[in-house]
Design a protein around this nucleic acid. Structure first.
Length: 570
RNA sequence: CGGGGCGUAGCGCAGUCUGGUAGCGCAUCUGCUUUGGGAGCAGAGGGCCGGAGGUUCGAAUCCUCUCGCCCCGACCA
């Protein structure tokens, strides 16, 4: 491509609206153009990167035995009503009506459509297993789109769906995807980790997220410094046994006055005990049922884990009035002793002895409280967020550290949630009908591009990993008015193009500095600089964007050298 | 949806408090010089100051309403 005729306009300044580096650089490099909140046009050079990501994804999906389809982006409401998600999905689902006033939605995900497709075509166990995928534009009406293309409302996504005869086979399909995802992100040149994740609204039994480590990441992930354990904060566990302090002999229960001391900080400061000796009692309401949640004083409840405790239903803290009714005391003095509602304790409470709780009476706390003697716990569960350097739940030596990450991929074992609600049954060898076991597997294509920039940039701009680079090489003639220079530039451009190497010829009548700045900003991996100095010896300068290494290469050997560098990288 | 902020030339911004000729930088166009890290000089074009209503002799500026965009929070494959 000739730079002089390309629809590519780089900028020195961008709006202060862009506050993550990938967004800023994409704007500066002329890759995207915003049309509305969370809705972007991909410009030629941005699209080239997207196409590279898509190509890698397709190759690995195909290699893993999946087959590509393309489903509609507009979906009739009936399908979503059938699965029950029309009412459950909420405002994120963009609902539209056609001219006959019929309901449709713009697909945010395609479980319904794929399940419908498969149930219409697959009857027998002989047709399974099956894995179908598509790369398509989706829409989710996010409350707050941000970070440019990283968290847009309209976005490109690869979604795959597997169908199997039984759990064992489904887990094999899952494992194949798990491995394919590793290959995909590795080929994209990304530093990532697969972490255990919550299944969220999609539902299902287990899942992994593929996270790229980045400061600007929206998710917190915990990983062990000794073993392979890694999990999203929503899922991360710790080892309650190693966390617990040594049990002490039970002391006698005592009531103490704590005038106006409500928060954990106030109470522990007043009683001069560490927060880890206090158990806080939170009254939650879900579906009009109340439950008391006990958590060690120095720990925070995790909303997602809580939701799981309440069988997936929304749980909210009880209001002041409800707390009074249940505990007979104002909030801040709730405790487990004497409560008539279910008491569920976080694992962090396990093994605690002689601790402090609220007295269910104004200005009163109880000390030297013990489980079993003073009250009973209905159930222990994992409720609290883990903290940095908590013990690892898998190995007995490691500790967890918390990083931020960007979720690029998510794989789920769905089970029969959709196949049962939508009647996707097959007939097995014995002639009985059974629901197919499903899995679903997503990759954010645009987000992968953004994450690659987050991980690969410097003060001068983007540093593309070679497989994603829109152009692998750029030919920079320093003086377009110099015949000899332009002759060599054209020759190299032609040779490289004929070798199948995407090359940008910067044939603009600009000064050298401007061209260098642009080549750096765009992140093109290999710069071929043609100037009078080198040409006197019949050489061009080859410079690598990533490390900055320079070498002088004879003109005739340049194309082959470039090819070699690319082959090695891909 | 709660709190905060911003809409002025293609882009980035000042001007608004205190009403009186609409400005700066980048980009664009012309000419000359320059040519290995975003060139210099001289000149030029480009604005319904987000939209509607109001106050005023006069509104980018004050008032009311509205639309859009951004940030924090809540929310979220």
């Amino acid at each position: 491509m000739r730079r002089s005729s390309m629809f590519l306009y780089t900028r020195k300044e961008v709006s202060s609206e862009a506050d993550v580096v990938s967004h800023q650089l994409m704007l500066k490099a002329g890759m995207i153009d915003k049309l509305a909140a969370g809705i972007y046009t991909l410009l030629p050079i941005g699209l080239m990167v997207i196409e590279n990501v898509k190509r890698i994804v397709k190759e690995e999906m195909d290699r893993a035995g999946a087959q590509e389809v393309l489903m509609p982006s507009v979906i009739p409401a009936e399908l979503w009503q059938e699965s029950g998600r029309w009412d459950k999905y909420g405002k994120e689902l963009l609902r539209i009506k056609d001219r006959h006033d019929r309901d449709f939605c713009y697909g945010p995900t395609h479980e319904e459509v794929i399940t419908d497709l498969v149930r219409k075509n697959v009857r027998s166990y002989r047709q399974l297993p099956l894995n179908l995928y598509q790369i398509q534009t989706k829409f989710r009406d996010e409350i707050r789109p941000r970070f440019g293309i990283m968290r847009g409302r309209e976005f490109i996504m690869k979604d795959a769906y597997s169908f199997d005869v039984d759990d064992q086979s489904a887990e094999e399909s899952y494992r194949i995807m798990y491995e394919a995802y590793h290959k995909i992100f590795k080929r994209c040149g990304l530093n990532f980790r697969a972490v255990e994740a919550d299944t969220g609204q999609i539902g299902g039994s287990f899942s992994h997220e593929f996270m790229v480590l980045a400061q600007s990441g929206e998710d917190a992930i915990a990983s062990c410094d000794k073993c392979d354990y890694a999990a999203n904060m929503e899922k991360a566990r710790t080892d309650a046994k190693r966390l617990a302090s040594k049990p002490e002999d039970n002391k006698g229960l005592e009531s103490v006055e704590t005038p106006n001391k409500k928060s954990v900080e106030e109470v522990t400061a007043f009683l001069k005990v560490p927060a880890g000796r206090l158990v806080k009692t939170l009254i939650f309401k879900s579906d009009n049922r109340f439950a008391a949640i006990l958590i060690r004083g120095d720990r925070q409840a995790n909303e997602v884990k809580l939701k799981d405790i309440f069988a997936g239903n929304e749980a909210v803290l009880a209001n002041e009035e409800e707390v009074k009714k249940i505990t007979a005391a104002p909030s801040g003095f709730s405790g487990p002793i004497g409560l008539k509602i279910d008491i569920i304790a976080d694992n962090s409470v396990k093994g605690m002895t002689n601790f402090v709780v609220g007295g269910n009476k104004k200005d009163t706390h109880l000390i030297n409280v013990n489980i079993g003697r003073d009250f009973e716990i209905k159930q222990f569960a994992d409720i609290a967020n883990i903290e940095d350097s908590d013990p690892c739940p898998l190995c007995d030596k490691g500790h967890l550290k918390i990083d931020r990450g960007i979720e690029l991929g998510h794989i789920f074992k769905l089970g029969t949630k959709y196949s049962e609600s939508m009647k996707a049954y097959y007939t097995d060898a014995e002639g009985t009908e059974k629901p197919m076991i499903m899995g679903c597997y997503g990759i954010g294509v645009g987000r992968t591009m953004a994450a690659a920039i987050e991980q690969n940039h410097d003060e001068n701009g983007i540093v593309w990993p070679i497989p994603l680079a829109p152009f692998k090489a750029t030919v920079i003639p320093l003086n377009t008015n110099h015949e000899g220079i332009m002759e060599v530039a054209e020759k190299l451009y032609k040779e490289l193009t004929e070798l199948g190497i995407e090359t940008l010829l910067d044939d603009r009548e600009d000064r050298a500095g401007a061209k260098f700045k642009d080549a750096d900003l765009l992140g093109i991996p290999i710069h071929l600089i043609i100037g009078e100095r080198g040409l006197k010896e019949g050489k061009v300068e080859l410079k690598l964007r990533a490390g900055g290494e320079k070498e002088m290469v004879p003109v005739d050997a340049t194309a082959a050298r470039v090819k070699a560098i690319i082959v090695e990288a891909i």
